[in-house]
């Protein structure tokens, strides 16, 4: 499976508070999370996520376990996230809701075309192709099913 989009480049240690602030969590309305995603980092960022691939630094998604952070990014239309490392809870949350996340170190500029190849386990951006760490077999299975809920439902007799 190949995923493609334009790069949105971010720094290291992007925490879940800046992805979606605590003040917006008391709701089930996903539109509210999309409306306020990254508001405290850059209010214009949310509108640039549709069809995009986030290319970030180390420790993406650190901090709170709030799954709303992964949900907000997916609902905003994000295609995938590439970062050298992720906070472990965010990483699991993303896979569990069917948002592809891969560990790899690639350097590019916002707007560059990015191709994430989930068969070859490479990311091509800014004209350079770099290897990424293959997801564990279990996570690949979850992602292929579209997330943990779909995976669970498909297992039921």
């Amino acid at each position: 499976m190949k995923l493609e989009g334009d790069a949105v480049c971010l720094g290291a240690d992007i925490d879940t508070d800046v992805i979606i602030a605590g003040r917006y969590l008391r709701t089930k309305d996903r539109k509210i999370w999309v409306e306020h995603v990254f508001e405290d980092l850059d209010p214009s960022l949310g509108s640039r996520l549709r069809g995009a691939v986030i290319v970030a630094g180390n420790n993406f998604g650190c901090g709170s376990s709030r799954e709303q952070a992964a949900v907000a990014l997916k609902e905003a239309g994000l295609v995938a996230i590439v970062a050298p490392s992720f906070s472990r809870i965010f990483f699991r949350n993303a896979i569990n809701i069917g948002l592809p996340v891969v560990e790899g170190d690639c350097h590019c500029t916002s707007g560059d075309h990015v191709v994430v190849d989930l068969d070859e386990w490479t990311v091509t951006c800014g004209g350079t192709r770099v290897p990424v760490r293959p997801l564990s077999a279990r996570m690949q299975e979850l992602l292929r099913a579209g997330g943990l809920v779909h995976h669970w439902r498909s297992k039921k007799p």
């Binding site: 709170s64 376990s65 799954e67 809870i89 699991r92 949350n93 569990n96 997330g147 943990l148």
Partner: peptide
């Protein structure tokens, strides 16, 4: 909740998970 690691103080393996993992 990410601070579920607190309970490791008792010699338990205690860790935080997200909502979907918890539902499972």
């Amino acid at each position: 909740d990410s601070h579920s690691c607190t309970l490791g103080a008792f010699g338990a393996f205690a860790t935080g998970v997200g909502a979907t993992d918890m539902a499972a």
